[in-house]
Amino acid sequence: MQQDMRILLEDVSYTYEEAAAPALSHVSASVRPGEFVAVLGHNGSGKSTMAKLLNALYIPTEGNVIVCGYDTRKEELVWEIRRRAGMIFQNPDNQIVATVVKEDVAFGLENLGVPTDEMLPRVESALAAVRMSQYADSAPHMLSGGQKQRIAVAGILAMEPSIIIADEATAMLDPSGQREVLETLHALNRQKGITVVWITHFMEEAATADRVLVVSDGEMVLTGTPREVFDQVDRLRELHLDVPPMTALAADLRAAGLPVQPGILTVEDMAKEVDRLLCPSKSAT
């Protein structure tokens, strides 16, 4: 059954050179094909280290990382892993290589040695998938942050990956850019069945995932569906993480003696719950 996992972390630890404490210690986790998993944690919690382990940019100090069935320890498999597990980084400016959008999208294909006549169609369909076709001939520095990140996504998409790892891909964007990029990844996850590992410190973004892993001080402290994870309001506050405002309100009402049900995440959830609490007759119909 473990063979079916897209990603498998087996008791993984990673210590940076010259660092006293491990950045990640004894983490075990798995990601199923087609899953959208969010990794939530503070800066320095070890979540970015985790991202880099998944792409064989780092090799674990202890334990094993298996990506699409390939062990990242085996040097000869590095390119097999990287073409299957693409990665987008935080700073939109620092990951675009070429001076023209479509050439940047082709960069990965050129590295893989894809024949020239196959390249353009793949680049074009990747740009269409992130809705950036009209910018194919633009200069990257003229685009907005959200658009640049979508170009980075297209560059990975052209390589036809099974997994996309987004390492705080929205941390430097404005709200509309954040929405653009998150929605793009959700669409790719739904339509193409691409597995997504979404690393973030934004609780709102984690709330949209199928499953949330919370890391703190290099350890995995919570895991479950967003509703399960965010219901642990006290634990999250202890970790100085944000709690969705409606979940927090639900907890406050519960503390005031109201029998609020667990699993409140959105404004809609809360409005329904208030209906249920205040007008049992109405919600029964």
């Binding site: 405002p245 109201l258 208030v274 205040l278």
Partner: peptide, 13 residues
Amino acid sequence: RPEELREHILRLR
């Protein structure tokens, strides 16, 4: 503010 909503919901209840 969330506190305001809390007070009002409790009052309505």
